[in-house]
Amino acid sequence: MTEAQGEVFDLGYRRYEGPREGRMRARKALWVNGVRTALGIGRPLGAKVIPAFLFIAVMIPAVIVSMVATQPNVDVIRHDGYYQIVSMILILFSAIIAPELLCPDRRDGVISLYLVRPMTTTDYVAARWMAFLTVTLGIVLAGQIVLFVGLVLAATEPLEYMKDNWLDVPRFMLAGLVVAAFTTAIPLAVSAFTTRRAYATSIIMGLFIISLPVAGILSLCGEDETVAVQGGKETVVTQKCEPATGDAAKWYALLAVGQVPSFVNDLIFPGQTDEGIFKEFSLVVAELPDAVPIGWYLILTIGPGLALLWRYRRISV
């Protein structure tokens, strides 16, 4: 008689005796989940299209510049001007994706499952914040790195170029963090106040897009050449232009909310940048003491962070 081979699988309930890692594991899980949600990983195809498209749009300037940099006598974008070039797309990305991390949790009711687990509201908010920071930081640094590699390869003496410009690397890392923290703070704070992603996105875009021309009208002036009518004759007069707000213009330029990280960026990279579509704001703001743009940046980053926490402390589920 042979002994029966094989095992009997007990499909009954088994208690879990393994490790329980508490809050650290909860934070880590929320962080990973936030990154995956932002990029549409593990979700239907439709959820991947938008982040992929926006990611490509951010990378395009870096790739194009890397390619044209091989041409002699072409004035290319360098690390100091890159963030300003991609700032609009970054803002668009944040306005569309950031609400994804907070709004559905409240609309679908998942938040009430999170809050009864071994973690606090602060853990939840901090993990989501870090997750979105990771994504935006990854995107801006990816662009800068592609740009750096492109510029090194295009240089006639690659090693020489690296020796002369290695300082750009820590600079763009720091500036990248500045930009990423900024594009994380305001969009997430706005998302905390509505459960509809569409409303959050419109408010964020409205804030960034509308503030630019408003600041422009208040703080900038057009051409230096103006047509003045003098005694029935039209003459072209070149005059020092005078913005609508006069001497206070440099303060009004701070209203260009979307450009605030660029002001800090300009302080990180020595020398005045003259690249970028919004360089006029930078030139006007440069008249202010350095502490002003830095302070304004910190207010606009830490303030929304605190508003986000405050809002979630009061949430009722």
């Binding site: 439709g46 938008i50 926006l54 306005a95 569409a198 996105t201 419109s202 897009i209």
Partner: peptide
């Protein structure tokens, strides 16, 4: 057509 009309609309307008 889509529940993400706003996202696509924004990309159309700004990009």
């Amino acid at each position: 057509m889509t529940t993400r009309a706003l996202a696509f609309g924004l990309m159309y307008v700004f990009i």
